[in-house]
Design a protein around this nucleic acid. Structure first.
Length: 375
RNA sequence: GCGUAAUUGGUGAAGUGGUUAACACACCAGUUUGUGGCACUGGCAUGCGUGGGUUCGAUUCCCACAUUACGCC
């Protein structure tokens, strides 16, 4: 399926662009941040909550749903949207390739695919480009991802060179397996780590396969921000302007701005929800840890001018109490706030692309986000 | 009043005549980037009821006192 993406406006001072893509769920504006809902749920949040934080496209994980409840059950339910009753927007599924990286201690990578052990049962499992596409077909997501290898950081040039070649071969196989599906867009993934020549090669070869969109993968695996930004810069010039660009697994508020300035359209990241579960909240003045003693008697909202449910209704002292007491409402309120923080940040980014003031916005944001903390 | 036992950080506790008093919880702080959700990493008793004594050295041995628990009158 051709994902109908178009660029509305390109920033003349950076590589940023405003765009939109159409699906049966409506028109979706880019840049966009996608919350992560691995197990067919953005942890602790209801569909209603997601609507209220202006989530649009969300990400779900092939590997987890494959193991439990199983793609056939999701399929029987009528697909992911029906199963989880998410009708706010599209769902993008990961290929399971990242698990090859995150479960690295038990992996065996072969040309045909990857063997690894289920973290639930210990059972030996096999995932291949074809299998990944088949599972994603059954899950019925709107955007599916090509099966790739996500090598760790640091990684030698030699290993990475072999890895990207294999990922390209896997991409070809996935593309062939996908031919049958008319209703799902398929994205290719550029790898290559920190190496300019490999990012370039990976991008060029992947683009030759003509995917519906392209992602920059293999970032946010432990490298510095500078290296991550460079990896984007190495790949983006070879990606077609009329296709959506997705930076996988990113990121921090500042990374969203830097990513957009480098030509990225969509992002996903577990940070807002994971940080929430650990008691952290984003604010314009930096990340704060609600567990800190100083919030015990702080009866103000996390951010005065935030329009999220948590800030409209509850104080830091109350949320701190919930987090310290291990009450799930605390995780939920912070997840609501953190996702809204990022979707609002993206809204601001769009405004500043429109005004061509993104660089000034970035600098001001950075100063406030990091600056006041260091004093 | 007598006897017995106990007394270690916020809590539960381990321990030894000799460098930094174990561990857990709590507390304090930090980490977290295509999620193996509810995790991980640090910090946290200058002191072992109080006062004496023995000893080169005592939280550890001895004495007195205090407190607590149980039993007896």
């Amino acid at each position: 399926m051709d994902l109908q993406f178009k660029v509305i406006k390109s920033d003349s001072k950076t590589n940023a662009r405003l765009g939109e893509y159409k699906t049966k769920w409506g028109v979706h504006k880019t840049p966009m941040f996608m919350p992560v809902g691995t197990q067919a749920t953005v942890k602790t949040l209801s569909t209603e909550d997601l609507k209220n934080v202006y989530a649009d496209t969300i990400l779900s994980n092939t590997y987890h749903l494959w193991l439990r409840p199983g793609e056939d059950i999701v399929n029987l339910a009528g697909g992911l949207h029906e199963f989880m009753n998410y009708k706010n927007g599209p769902i993008l599924t990961d290929s399971g390739g990242y698990q090859v990286f995150s479960l690295a201690n038990k992996k065996d990578i072969y040309e045909n695919g990857v063997y690894f052990k289920s973290h639930l049962s210990g059972e030996k499992l096999f995932l291949s480009p074809e299998k990944s596409i088949e599972i994603q077909n059954k899950l019925g997501s709107d955007i599916i991802m090509s099966f790739d290898e996500c090598p760790p950081y640091p990684c030698s040039h030699e290993y990475m060179a072999n890895s990207i070649d294999r990922t390209i071969r896997w991409a070809k196989r996935g593309k062939i397996a996908h031919k049958k599906s008319e209703s799902q867009a398929l994205f290719g993934i550029v790898q290559g780590g920190e190496f300019e020549d490999l990012r370039k090669k990976s991008a060029i070869e992947t683009v030759k396969l003509d995917f519906d969109g392209y992602s920059v993968g293999g970032v946010s695996v432990g490298e510095s921000k500078e290296i991550m930004y460079k990896a984007i810069d190495y790949a983006v010039p070879y990606l077609p302007k009329d296709k959506i660009r997705y930076l996988m697994g990113v990121g921090d508020p500042i990374d969203l701005i830097e990513g957009v300035m480098r030509g990225i359209d969509i992002f996903d990241c577990v940070s807002p929800t994971r940080l929430a579960r650990h008691g952290n909240a984003y604010t314009r003045s930096g990340k704060i840890n609600l567990r800190n003693n100083k919030y015990k008697t702080d009866f103000n909202p996390i951010e005065e001018d935030c329009d999220c449910y948590a800030c409209k209704n509850h104080t830091k002292a109350y949320i701190r109490h919930l987090i310290v007491s291990d009450e799930t409402l605390g995780s939920r309120l912070l997840s609501i706030h953190n996702i809204r923080f990022l979707t609002k940040l993206i809204e601001d980014i769009r405004i500043h692309i429109e005004d061509e003031t993104l660089i000034e916005f970035r600098d001001a944001f950075k100063t406030k986000y990091y600056g006041e903390k260091n004093e």
